[in-house]
């Protein structure tokens, strides 16, 4: 088991956001976390990497309990995180953005070099010295994924990678994610776009009002339109 989350509860101040969240990600799997806005997808990711201060529960990553460790240590274990809204460093160049993400090689994870990343995202290779602020939204989304891959993660949490992107860029994103999977990176992707999720995921969980209310393969989800309609409000 790559990642196992058990009984995760999170609070922001007085507000209880996540209730006993539990899910698993197998080696080399792509798992989708589906749910509408405010359902708790981003909070789940932020809690896993320790960016939410008030959290309880158990997070096992590659057999190690990382639930009480600080963010940078969790990430250094090989658990990469790509936030929503991209959050690239707009004042830094593409190269420098990648440098911030650079971490040593890891034995049990694919090793990414700049060259390999520029092959995965050819646009980036053409603008190595451009500052992040002068890139389009699609290019920024590629950079934010490339930046996380520089840390040679064995698992990546991808928060809403298709949000705000043109249909064509979203299709490129599908290819990139499938390549990452082929290289051996396990992926958890949070999404609202079911079309997109279906193209990349092996399994899916649905999160609603801070609780997991469905878990199964994409085929099982398709077989349950009642669940899909109730929680994803398509």
């Amino acid at each position: 088991m790559k990642l196992k989350v058990e009984g995760l509860n999170s609070h922001y101040g007085p507000a209880h956001i996540l209730f006993d969240i539990g899910f698993e990600v197998g080696e080399g799997e792509v798992v989708a976390l589906l749910g509408r806005n405010g359902a708790g997808k981003s909070t789940t990711f932020r809690s896993i990497v320790g960016l939410v201060a008030q959290r309880t529960g158990r997070i096992m990553f590659e057999g190690k309990d990382v639930s009480v460790r600080p963010t940078h240590e969790i990430v250094r274990e090989g658990l990469g995180y790509v936030p929503e809204e991209r959050r690239i460093f707009t004042d830094l160049t593409v190269e420098e953005n990648l440098e911030v993400g650079r971490q040593p090689k890891r034995p049990n994870a694919p090793h990414w070099t700049r060259e390999k990343l520029f092959a995965l995202f050819p646009n980036l290779g053409e603008m190595k010295n451009r500052s992040g602020g002068r890139m389009s939204g699609g290019e920024q989304q590629m950079l934010t994924i490339a930046r996380t891959l520089m840390g040679n993660p064995s698992l990546v949490l991808l928060d809403e990678p298709s949000e705000g992107l043109s249909p064509k860029i979203v299709e490129q994103m599908v290819d990139a994610i499938l390549t990452m999977k082929k290289e051996g990176v396990s992926i958890v992707v949070s999404e609202q776009n079911l079309h997109f999720a279906r193209l990349i995921s092996d399994r899916a969980y649905i999160i609603e009002r801070g609780r997991i209310c469905f878990g199964g393969t994409m085929a099982e989800l398709d077989a349950r339109p009642d669940i899909r309609d109730a929680h994803l409000s398509l």
Binding site: V49, P70, H72, V75, P83
Partner: peptide, 19 residues
Amino acid sequence: VLVRAATQDRDMVAALGVN
């Protein structure tokens, strides 16, 4: 580079494995 990155987004720097 890390300092300039942190100038912009501290949490993101941590989320990339920097103490």
